Amino acid sequence: MTVQTRLALADQREGADLAAFLGRLLRFDRAAAVRLQAVPGPGGAGDADVDVDGGGVLAVFGRLPLGGAAVLAVRTVRLAGPVAAADLTVSAGQLLEAVDEAGAALTPPAPVTGPSWAGLLPPRSGWQPLGRPPVDRVVGEVLAAVEEFKRRTAEVPDHHRTRQAVDAIADEIWSRPLAAAEGLPLRAAHAAHAIGFLRPGTPLAAHRAGPWLRLDAPAGSVALRAAAAPGAGLGLSPLR
């Protein structure tokens, strides 16, 4: 994929969903970068200089800036027509501007120097199933935890309500196991909810590969490493 390569999307909905995903990322970090990986469809080639028959997918990886135990959000976009394998990191804001929803197309902007997280992505294979948690139960747990976070932070006296104190409360809450899916922390479900992946009636699936954990939904996936760093909570709020 070159900077000027125009990618045809499978339909207008793909463009709208990608734009919504990028918009949510930018609410959390106006300077967000995303890593793009174009994967040819069946019968395609891995050579970035070779056009292939059939469509493919574009995987868009973004990082929710939630402290040391950051969560990666992944949105896959179905492509139409030939696509060559490619891998680059770009500005999320510039990518959003490049989405042509009406024309169901996308022209990736110029690459940027990738942030450190972009060099450590979850594996593509080796995932073992952990279960299929009901989305209603997952959302219920997340909303209850959000209310607890708000209540407990409000109870902290103003002169003690430092970022460190707020993050400590958040980390204690979001590090708890998710009752609806054994092996996953609440942090994964909260991230999926914050990025808009948890929708009523949609099927979910949890997986693990080594230290990596993943929660899948039709709208996208979130992934994180199992070992959480102290103070790594979801205490940050989206930019207004």
Rank of each mutant, 00 (worst) to 15 (best):
P203Y: 05
A227R: 15
P185E: 03
R187W: 08
A228D: 12
H193R: 14
V222N: 12
R161V: 02
F197V: 02
A206L: 05
P203G: 11
G210A: 11
D171G: 03
A180N: 05
A194E: 15
A217H: 03
F197R: 01
G201Y: 12
D216F: 03
A217Y: 09
A170T: 07
L204N: 04
L178G: 00
G233N: 03
P185C: 06
T162F: 00
A165W: 06
L184G: 04
A191Y: 12
L224F: 00
A227G: 13
A205H: 08
W212E: 09
R176K: 14
L213V: 00
A168L: 00
R161L: 09
D167K: 06
I173D: 03
G196A: 11
L186G: 05
T162K: 04
G196F: 11
A205R: 12
R214T: 01
L204G: 05
G201K: 11
V166M: 02
G233M: 04
T162H: 04
L184F: 01
I195S: 06
V222P: 02
P218D: 13
L186E: 00
A227W: 11
S221Y: 10
A170D: 00
A168S: 02
D171S: 14
P177V: 11
P218A: 13
I169R: 08
V166P: 06
A227P: 10
P200E: 06
P218H: 13
P185I: 09
P203Q: 09
V222E: 12
A165R: 12
G201E: 09
A223W: 00
P203I: 04
T202E: 15
L213N: 00
